[in-house]
Design a binder for these strands. Sequence first.
DNA 1: ACCTGAACACCGTTCAAGT
DNA 2: ACCTGAACACCGTTCAAGT
Lengths: 182, 182
Amino acid sequence: MPARAMRADARRNYEQLVAAAMAVVAEEGPDASLNEVAKRAGVGAGTLYRHFPTRESLLAAVYEGRLARLCARAEEAGGALPPAEALVDWLRALVTHAMTDRGLGARMMLSPEAAGVDCWATLHAAAERLLRPAQEAGAVRADVEAADLIALAGGIAQATPDPAHATHLLTLTLNGLLTPTP
Amino acid sequence: MPARAMRADARRNYEQLVAAAMAVVAEEGPDASLNEVAKRAGVGAGTLYRHFPTRESLLAAVYEGRLARLCARAEEAGGALPPAEALVDWLRALVTHAMTDRGLGARMMLSPEAAGVDCWATLHAAAERLLRPAQEAGAVRADVEAADLIALAGGIAQATPDPAHATHLLTLTLNGLLTPTP
DNA sequence: ACCTGAACACCGTTCAAGT
DNA sequence: ACCTGAACACCGTTCAAGT
């Protein structure tokens, strides 16, 4: 979000840049032209770079709202459902989330530098909050970590453009490819 | 490979382009500059485009040799080891393969258009040759297809730059995140 | 037939000049 | 303080001119 003490015009430009970026990224994905974003925001290229020194910092601003919604969902599910179901539901949402806007979510999920430390920590905390109870209930293997869940969901999202196929891949990952041999 | 009836100079240029592309892609990954490839091959930009109308067609030429080695390995393993072990070994090799040159392999594995129909068919045939016996032996679930194996291996390769983490993610995928509940 | 390389459109990024 | 937008370096791609 924009810093508190910004001059009125700066704040306005900041907000228009994020709005323009949301539109352009939705159309062209995370590699969209930054000059195009500046142009559509009605702002000079230098202004974009002043507010967002890197592409990833702009993407992170676009991504912030979605992430908040996703983590809110983790909170709700954690209270209402049995641990394993809550986790599986949320993982499905995570894969869907990672696939939107030509893989913007996956790109953020798979790189701490891209997402920024705040987003990163928020996402990991949400994953952990669902993972722990499921492990304590014995429903999820003990050698799984929150980072693994996020990496697997991001990887699956990158692996196919088809949501139905992604769902299938997640199901396979949950159950395992090998038949259980106890 | 180059067509048979090429003029001597054309053939020479073709080979130098592939050699230059192998070097440049190894250094800069699959998004390396094509002008740089042409320059390093000692060839005009137009010549590169004559031989390789798209970036993917050039990458496919680079990728061809590696793919052949990988599929040869599938052949050997299929004969020598029990079905499930042969498959798991090969999947580990597939993930490693997908991670080389900043994800060149993964990029090829995850897009039929990128790899070209020939590469695509070869890779799928190799996967199927190991998958079928493992399924018939009851070691691998019946609802797994060759395309799933390739997508999951490619996704894992994209999900982390660390080979040890990738290996762990593959192990999780093989065993499943959830504890078996028969 | 095939090759060259200048040319064009585009993009990321910077920075002097403005208010 | 902040903004503008021309400018620079680079890249993908094409195509007239050459051999």
